[in-house]
């Protein structure tokens, strides 16, 4: 039986940035790894009551934060340019 996690999606200029507050533990590894430094702490609390993260429009949808997240709490979907 697959478990559902509640997503919180932001639509940005070049990507859809989804954070799952039920998985995010607020370690901040993604903030440091982001090449555009566009991830910041948000007011939405994560699973341990620590701040989760959100991105701004500088995001290029590279997906490094998704790969580096130890908790798989980030999902990046890059917008396809037409």
């Amino acid at each position: 039986m697959p478990l559902e996690f509640k997503p919180k999606t932001q639509e940005l200029d070049s990507s859809f940035f989804t954070i799952f507050p039920g998985l995010c533990k607020g370690c901040g590894l993604c903030i440091e790894k982001c090449p555009k430094k566009c991830i910041v702490w948000s007011n939405t609390l994560g699973v341990y009551g620590t701040p989760s993260v959100e991105a701004d429009d500088d995001c290029i949808g590279c997906g490094i934060c998704q790969n580096i997240c130890p908790d798989c709490a980030i999902n990046i979907e890059k917008k396809v340019k037409h």
Binding site: T9, C27, V47, P70, E77
Partner: peptide
Amino acid sequence: MGNSSVQPVMPRSWRVDTKPHKFCPGC
């Protein structure tokens, strides 16, 4: 596409029902 059906990208061999796992933040 940015709707509520988006789910975390986890390896298929992970057990989803035990997540969030027990390791510390940043482990």
